[in-house]
């Protein structure tokens, strides 16, 4: 608890990640901060994330790919 109290008593140092509206609120109160523009990969869409994961490097079963590679897929 004492560590937390100590932290709350210090000057805020903020890195805001994602929604900029939180950064704007702090800026209005003159809190110095760094805003990082970040979004969840593929907007968190599980189907797209799965496709993106599979579309890395060698392609497992393309029509132009070899039979051997297709078997691996």
């Amino acid at each position: 608890m004492s560590e937390e109290k100590e932290l709350l008593g210090q000057r805020l140092q903020v890195v805001n990640i994602g929604l900029e509206v939180f950064a704007e609120t702090l800026r209005r109160h003159q809190v110095p901060l760094v805003h990082l523009d970040w979004r969840p990969p593929a907007q968190g869409d599980a189907h797209l994330l799965d496709l993106l994961r599979r579309l890395q490097g060698p392609l497992p079963g393309s029509s132009e790919g070899s039979g051997e590679r297709a078997k691996e897929g």
Binding site: G57, P58, E64, R69
Partner: peptide, 10 residues
């Protein structure tokens, strides 16, 4: 690039 496994990076 017409034969062998395709590599997206290549």
């Amino acid at each position: 690039m017409s034969s062998g496994p395709l590599d997206i990076d290549d």
